[in-house]
């Protein structure tokens, strides 16, 4: 699994976007993860703890993982439907692989100490 490398990507992304002073005051990271992203939340939490400890960074930050379902938009009839049991079709039964949600793997929000 690639959770460890994803956690390192979280760190790199935050370090690109925020200053060291800000990151010292980081209290939380909210991830948005599509069901298709092949991320196992428990493994991700474990990886996060392992990396924060070994790198001695972001120890105060809590990781939350928001898993979002797969949605397709039908190019034929425009219907947007949730994909269940990995049957990729719209509510009217048209097969489609036009995924509009479910592949995301991103940092949605970050939280800092207020003062």
């Amino acid at each position: 699994m690639h959770e460890i490398s994803l956690v390192r990507n979280i760190f790199n992304t935050l370090e690109d976007e925020f200053s060291k002073e800000d990151l010292d005051r980081l209290t939380g990271i909210d991830l948005k993860v599509g069901l298709l992203a092949n991320v196992e939340p428990t493994l991700m939490q474990n990886a996060f703890e392992a990396v924060t400890e070994t790198e001695n960074k972001f120890l105060k930050a809590k990781l939350s993982i928001n898993v979002v379902p797969i949605l397709v938009e039908c190019p034929l009839c425009g219907d947007v439907a949730e994909v269940k049991n990995y049957l990729f079709q719209c509510g009217n039964g048209h097969p489609t692989n036009n995924v509009i949600q479910g592949e995301e793997l991103l940092i949605e929000r970050v939280h800092f100490q207020e003062d």
Partner: peptide
Amino acid sequence: KSSKAARGTVQCDNSSFSLLK
């Protein structure tokens, strides 16, 4: 990075905060 200290909750944009960027 140069802006004043981040406080509270910061909403992130999708492109620069994608872990596969």
